[in-house]
Simulated assay, not measured.
Amino acid sequence: MAAWPVSGDTFVESFAKGLSVIAAFGHERALNLTQIARRTGLTRATARRLLHTLVALGFARHDEDLFMLTPRVLQLGFAYLSTLSLRDVAQPVIESLSRAADEVVGLSVLDDLDAVYIARAEVTSVLRRPLTVGSGVPAFCTSMGRVLLAGLDPDECASRLARAERRAWTRHTVTDADALMDEIARVRGQGWSLATEQLELGACGLAVAVVDNGGKVIAALNLSTNLARHTPDILIKTFLPRLREAADEIARQLPV
């Protein structure tokens, strides 16, 4: 059994056990039940119950005999970021691109129906919506979200769109599921997405996929700006090559 440093009426052991399971992942992306039980000092039965509770709450996912944390753990703080070398690799690349472009640049991952920022840099804030690391935005109506949805199997993508609250954030927001599937298919084919005034009037986002060695989309790198600063055509011509170069640089530095 795990030995706790404190005890008493103010100490909730069951809560401590749950936190110990999250902390057990350390820098590992995936662990099996035996590994988690060994690292926490919990019995396999207790570890199993806690893991499946985390899965049910969306803080972890289960793939055969392996368990992995999800970006939703960001809601508890920055524990999720410690499991990713991705953020450490990406942050200096993002900061360099943000300075060169004088625009907001961010890296996000997919958390069910949302794109969640895991790294961000800005020189000049051009957006009304305050966003920081850990902030999530609807995937269906953002450039980075569409890139991430395009990385899914089409059936899984359709399933998530069906569950999403496809709210019309502006008069330009595309909410029709079939139209979104067509747009995401186009994004899947070209590897990038441009979203204009979909979430906020006057705002425009351009995003590309960050792909691992196996060809899997693991994140989206996006640049956000205001249409008063750049037209969509200029945005694509000027910044798409830079985003692609930055995404390739991040992918090259990731451990195999």
Score class of each variant (00 low, 15 high):
residue 60 A to Y: 00
residue 29 R to L: 09
residue 69 L to E: 03
residue 127 L to G: 09
residue 105 V to W: 02
residue 85 S to I: 15
residue 46 T to Y: 10
residue 165 E to W: 13
residue 42 L to K: 03
residue 57 L to F: 12
residue 52 H to G: 07
residue 179 A to F: 08
residue 175 T to M: 00
residue 126 V to T: 14
residue 180 L to Y: 01
residue 102 D to A: 13
residue 230 H to S: 06
residue 217 V to S: 11
residue 80 Y to I: 07
residue 71 P to S: 05
residue 42 L to E: 02
residue 77 G to P: 06
residue 202 G to H: 10
residue 217 V to N: 10
residue 208 V to C: 06
residue 94 I to C: 00
residue 162 A to S: 08
residue 73 V to H: 07
residue 93 V to L: 13
residue 2 A to F: 12
residue 143 S to Y: 06
residue 239 F to C: 08
residue 158 A to V: 00
residue 224 S to R: 15
residue 108 S to D: 07
residue 233 D to W: 09
residue 208 V to N: 08
residue 71 P to I: 00
residue 97 L to P: 08
residue 53 T to C: 04
residue 159 S to L: 15
residue 154 P to A: 02
residue 199 L to C: 06
residue 4 W to L: 13
residue 2 A to I: 08
residue 254 L to H: 15
residue 152 L to Y: 05
residue 176 D to L: 02
residue 107 L to P: 00
residue 106 G to R: 05
residue 201 L to H: 13
residue 171 R to H: 14
residue 235 L to N: 04
residue 71 P to D: 00
residue 113 L to K: 00
residue 221 L to Y: 10
residue 134 G to T: 00
residue 250 I to N: 08
residue 37 A to M: 13
residue 186 R to Q: 11
residue 1 M to H: 15
residue 247 A to W: 01
residue 233 D to I: 14
residue 90 A to Y: 06
residue 164 A to V: 04
residue 180 L to H: 06
residue 54 L to R: 10
residue 176 D to A: 10
residue 188 R to E: 08
residue 228 A to G: 13
residue 94 I to Q: 11
residue 179 A to I: 05
residue 191 G to C: 08
residue 77 G to F: 07
residue 109 V to T: 02
residue 106 G to I: 01
residue 203 A to K: 01
residue 147 V to T: 04
residue 91 Q to T: 10
residue 195 A to P: 03
residue 123 V to W: 09
residue 256 V to E: 14
residue 157 C to F: 06
residue 220 A to R: 02
residue 72 R to M: 00
residue 105 V to Y: 02
residue 71 P to F: 01
residue 243 L to R: 03
residue 64 E to G: 03
residue 140 F to Y: 11
residue 56 A to H: 15
residue 87 R to N: 02
residue 187 V to N: 03
residue 88 D to Y: 13
residue 78 F to N: 14
residue 251 A to M: 09
residue 254 L to S: 12
residue 197 E to M: 07
residue 107 L to W: 01
residue 168 A to L: 06
residue 145 G to R: 01
residue 231 T to G: 07
residue 252 R to G: 14
residue 133 V to R: 01
residue 222 N to Q: 12
residue 38 R to C: 09
residue 189 G to I: 02
residue 119 A to F: 11
residue 19 L to I: 13
residue 250 I to Y: 03
residue 39 R to K: 15
residue 193 S to R: 06
residue 137 V to S: 04
residue 195 A to G: 09
residue 158 A to Q: 06
residue 244 R to F: 14
residue 191 G to E: 05
residue 103 E to H: 06
residue 253 Q to C: 12
residue 11 F to L: 04
residue 254 L to P: 11
residue 8 G to D: 14
residue 123 V to T: 15
residue 190 Q to P: 07
residue 164 A to D: 12
residue 168 A to Q: 05
residue 138 P to A: 01
residue 204 C to K: 07
residue 197 E to K: 06
residue 212 D to Y: 03
residue 2 A to C: 03
residue 208 V to S: 02
residue 60 A to N: 02
residue 109 V to P: 04
residue 72 R to W: 01
residue 177 A to N: 10
residue 121 A to V: 11
residue 82 S to W: 11
residue 167 R to Y: 12
residue 80 Y to N: 05
residue 207 A to S: 11
residue 35 Q to F: 01
residue 188 R to T: 02
residue 233 D to P: 06
residue 58 G to D: 03
residue 100 A to E: 12
residue 81 L to T: 04
residue 234 I to L: 15
residue 10 T to H: 12
residue 154 P to T: 01
residue 93 V to H: 13
residue 242 R to M: 12
residue 171 R to G: 14
residue 45 A to W: 07
residue 150 A to R: 03
residue 183 E to S: 11
residue 173 T to Q: 08
residue 142 T to A: 10
